[in-house]
Write a protein that binds this DNA or RNA. Structure first.
Lengths: 353, 353
DNA sequence: GGCAAGAACTGTAACGTTACAGATTGAATC
DNA sequence: GATTCAATCTGTAACGTTACAGTTCTTGCC
């Protein structure tokens, strides 16, 4: 049995043995077990043509010495990066939104070999650029994007090139893909219903920018519910949740000083609601008296701002976890239909003292 | 001139040329220029022993065909990952804090070849674990950590093993290292000074958890300034900025109902201040009248919560950018002393209507 | 006893890059 | 004309992994 013709992994290195131990590789295990590297490699991934005894022996040794596959080696050989890329707009307004998304994703990735890489872009630049980078350099196995548009270039790009991805928000472009979304239609329906029940008649909507998909959902729900309850809309077109706090505040105050001011607001974002409230009060009106506001929030701060606010909670952390599961599902080749989820808003909550 | 003995990069692949083009490699450029891969490699990194004409020719071709070095190849050969790892506590309370940190880091990394990998851990587990993982598997060239402690195991671990890193916050353990910190000592000195000027006498501090470095800075500044202005402290030991909004609120209300309640608060975190205000009002007291509060904030929401609040802004995005610059500096072997920065708090701001 | 077939294992090559040790020039020096 | 030298270029090997094409050995069958 020619066992000693295996080359020990550190041969040629003259350092004393007390020096830094290099991380173990397949070669290390091969040397320790007297097997070939190929056998070790296959034994570690439970290949069928490896004997049960050998497999167990290899896995035991690997565990003992704390073997971890070298990511660069695997990536170079197989092309598998074990990376999920989160493409983020770094101009994103305030709020723990992005933090929560990242926490949710991390949570779901923790049990997997995947690392999370944040790929930023500036809203001023082309949103397609970071996606193109990731796809062209194959620097991730899957991508998560947010700020989804109804006809989204990024979705088309990734679809055409077979890059697995999941979107935060839906599209309407005839391409089926994994997504997670908050049901903003249901949200604004519930919000309007609440305001109707409070006797409000003329409602305004602080909407997302009209380029984004959820603008349409929110707007449609708003319009349908207005119709159903026989209420009217006070247009508030210039302001969106993407505007700065100062802008929204000023636009709101202006709106409130008009003769046909609204007596109810539906707000699409927690931070925007801070500005709404300030604008309303700047104009001299009182929340819960002259006007009522229903807002979405991802943090829990709105009721501390004003207890008169009505809120619906959006669990962004959950969204992150769902998105991570969805991309991983796509990478594993799972069925798209099973990787699409919609989060139903909870009931509108009044402040509970 | 034997030029055609170079092997074209796609030899052996039977696909028609109309198929997907594989990303160009050094071999591609070598083939196109008629040079050897080694020459191409060196030409691209401006090595001195390559002729000026050749260098330009190679770089031109590389640019034209959109060559990008394969990260796995570089990483495997050199050990350089071109990755910065941000180690994050995923239990972090609320606030755009982490978002801003990430945006700041991304901003600074955008001009470099570095990718940002988020390495999460749960506060319940050992904070050393993710750091050990990154160091042991050499999965990043540099690390950024936050929630720094005066005697920080992670700092020791990375120091001893020569992993470049930067900390958000300082340590006091006789190890010199790169950091960025907000001057929380100066902050609480200014905060107390403001409250003294307002005629407040009995101050309480909503501090960070006592395990963290900035607890001590904030506390020392608080104590020194109390002394200087002849004010007294109302102990508020159980509550920290890490507690939930609900907990802080309740503890604050309890405190305010005591006979020796404070007439001024210094708050170490924006989200905590939301809870402070709620607790104060729960107990029936009025901000600006019975009590004044000075708070740090990283978002701009506090003055919308209550205009009576006094705020100091902490630019976390800047902190992120500084931290990124600091780690990169360490990786480049720059002097530690030049990679330590302290951000001086701006003046205490009252609401400016 | 000879042979086929499977089980269990092995070596080689390749992914893309760079370190290292040459090789090939042409010009300058003696 | 030979020798040295610098300038410029090149091939080979290796980083750690896996696909592929063997190789060896045992066992069963005729």
């Amino acid at each position: 049995m020619a066992m000693n013709d295996k080359t020990p992994p550190d041969e040629g290195v003259e350092q004393a043995n007390g020096g830094e131990a290099n991380p173990p590789t397949l070669k290390t295990i091969a040397f320790m077990t007297g097997l070939g590297v190929t056998t070790v490699s296959r034994a570690l991934k439970d290949a069928p043509e490896i004997g049960a005894a050998t497999r167990q022996r290899v896995q035991l040794v690997a565990r003992q010495i704390g073997y971890r596959p070298n990511r660069a080696g695997v990536r170079l050989r197989t092309g598998k990066t074990n990376v999920i890329s989160l493409v983020l707009d770094t101009e994103e307004q305030v709020g723990g939104f992005v933090s929560d998304l990242i926490y949710g994703i991390s949570e779901a990735l923790a049990q997997t070999p995947y690392h999370l890489v944040v790929t930023p872009y500036s809203r001023n630049n082309d949103p397609l650029e970071p996606v193109r980078y990731v796809v062209d350099t194959a620097s991730a196995d899957g991508v998560i994007i947010s700020r989804t548009e109804p006809d989204d270039k990024r979705v088309r790009y990734m679809s055409e090139r077979g890059m697995p991805f999941a979107t935060h928000g839906r599209t309407h472009m005839g391409i089926d893909h994994a997504f997670h979304d908050f049901d903003n239609y249901a949200y604004s329906v519930e919000a309007v219903k609440k305001l109707a029940a409070l006797g409000r008649k003329r409602l305004a909507l602080l909407a997302p920018p009209s380029s984004l998909s959820y603008y349409h959902h929110m707007r449609d729900g708003f319009a349908d519910a207005l119709m159903e309850h026989g209420l009217s809309e006070v247009p508030f077109p210039t302001a969106t949740v993407d505007h700065s706090i100062e802008d929204i505040r000023k636009l709101t105050a202006d709106l409130m000083r008009r003769p046909n001011r609204p007596d109810g607001f539906v707000s699409g974002a927690g931070a925007g609601t801070f500005a709404l409230v300030a604008g309303v009060e700047d104009a001299g009106f009182k929340l819960g008296q002259d006007i009522d506001i229903v807002s979405k929030q991802s943090s829990k701060l709105l009721h501390l701002l004003r207890p008169q606010l009505y809120v619906v909670n959006e669990d962004v952390r959950l969204a992150g976890a769902e998105l991570a599961r969805a991309v991983i599902g796509r990478i594993a080749g799972r069925d798209i239909a099973s990787l699409q989820s919609l989060s139903t808003p909870s009931a509108v909550e009044a402040y509970d003292a």
